[in-house]
Amino acid sequence: MKKLVFTLLFIGVASFSFAQEKYMTRNGNVSFIAEGVVKDGVQAKNDQAACVLNASSGEVVFQILIQSFQFEKALMQEHFNENYMESHKFPKAMLKGKINEWKSIDLSKNGDYKVTVTGDLTIHGVTKKVTENGKVEVRDGKVRLTSDFGVTLADYNIAIPKIVEDKIAKQAKVSLVMALEKTK
């Protein structure tokens, strides 16, 4: 059953689109900085993000495993997983949406495009409708998606204890870089 869900989610961004062209990565990079007033190095990187883009429709799915975020400090990583993100309970985060300007993008020649993505962002078990800015770069048949956006922790029921509220920002700055290749 789980296998079927994964297949539908990633390989078939749209269930009818098996014959359509898709671009994919399983090694995308997502990083965040959530430093508060007191600078304490609250930042982490995740190099195992998965992303599938349906080149016919502009539909796109990003998915990450929360425990794949790597911190420099062991205690920070432990608190992130156990206290804030509860990663045993909510092991994944996902953005499923559509690139609004997809029709104006030509994948047959090199170019850069400023775009917006509208979709559902699920973090910590909470799903919110979002629209975020991003960029699509087309280079020699490959597609690179980048975006920088903010995530307000309270919107996703991520509670920050009073004792560390000066050290952790209310809004995390998230960056993603996805180098996509056409699926064979």
Binding site: L65, Q67, S68, K92
Partner: peptide
């Protein structure tokens, strides 16, 4: 490595 779950693949870090 440390198992962090499954997306397309099962993922091990570090």
């Amino acid at each position: 490595g440390v198992c962090t779950g499954m997306l397309l693949d099962v993922v091990l870090t570090r």
